[in-house]
């Protein structure tokens, strides 16, 4: 073996050790979550800590599905994540089409107003948003979240960028064939923007699935709770039943993990353009 080869083996080894170690630090909490969820309530408080449960049990999972509202919360989370994503993408791509492909008076000025609203963080306006929603009787309704997604300046901005890059000759050809704006939008522009749409869609799904502040403010009816909300309320109610809380947390992570596995590419580009809700 040459010296260069040995060096290469050593640096590969260091890479696996360092990478594995940091990954382990990141994963220990998850390991702890899974282990805890498989313990009985009594085993939670054993000293020394049981790294592997002596009597693994699915009792926590049985109990959590029997709790009122938990299965409903899973359904609500799916419903919310899917519907808000559809509305957001639809509304944003329509606006982006108008801003990028239709010439009208005030186009640029209106777009600048859209962008300016991005300066105000959501954390600053959630109180008036609640006030207005409750005056319009939109609180405690999952469908009200759809209305809130009508305006998403970030998605509009990203889609407009994409659509600006689509050559107008496609559109001119469609017009010659007798197409109107609706046809051009659905048949030409949307298919050509599908990459950005997928990225924004994945980000929106994850944002809605994991969102906490907005549902916390808008929803007080237990029947309308999403997974983060029900976990939050279990934290208050069953604050010491960590097997239950960890089982619930794990259940809330699995769907988003599955989506990630199938759409890694879009997740990565989405995170890189900064479309993630902090």
């Amino acid at each position: 073996m040459t010296r260069k080869n040995i060096n290469k083996y050593i640096s590969t080894l260091i890479f696996y050790v360092v990478g594995g170690l940091t990954a382990a630090i990141l994963l220990i909490p998850f390991f702890w979550m899974i282990v805890t969820s498989l313990k009985t309530k009594g085993a939670l408080l054993s000293i020394p800590v049981e790294w592997i449960p002596k009597n693994p049990s699915l009792a926590a999972y049985e109990k959590i599905f029997k709790l009122e509202g938990f299965s409903k919360a899973i359904f609500n989370s799916f419903y919310l994540a899917i519907t808000t994503t559809i509305v957001q993408i639809l509304s944003a791509s329509m606006a982006a089409y108008a801003f990028s492909k239709i010439r009208f008076k005030g186009n640029e000025a209106l777009f600048r107003v859209y962008l300016a609203t991005m300066m105000i963080p959501f954390q600053v306006v959630f109180i008036p948003l609640f006030i207005i929603s409750s005056s319009l009787r939109l609180t405690n309704s999952l469908n009200a979240f759809l209305l809130l997604q009508l305006f998403n300046p970030f998605a509009i901005f990203m889609l407009r960028q994409k659509m600006m890059g689509i050559n107008d000759s496609f559109i001119e050809a469609a017009i010659i064939d007798g197409a109107n704006h609706f046809h051009i939008f659905t048949k030409v522009i949307l298919p050509l923007s599908s990459g950005v749409i997928a990225t924004l869609g994945i980000m929106s799904f994850m944002g809605s699935w994991n969102d906490y502040l907005l549902p916390l403010v808008m929803i007080s009816d237990k029947k309308k709770f999403t997974l983060p909300l029900i976990l939050n309320s279990l934290n208050g109610q069953y604050g010491s039943d960590y097997n239950l809380l960890m089982a619930g947390s794990l259940i809330s992570i699995i769907p988003i993990l599955i989506v990630f596995m199938f759409a890694q590419k879009y997740f990565r580009s989405g995170l890189q353009v900064g479309g993630v809700k902090a």
Partner: peptide, 20 residues
């Protein structure tokens, strides 16, 4: 994938895990 798992996790679940 390992590094992204915490990013994908909701803050409520992540905070519960850490609290415990």
């Amino acid at each position: 994938v390992l590094y992204y798992v915490p990013v994908l996790t909701s803050w409520v679940a992540g905070a519960l895990i850490w609290k415990w």
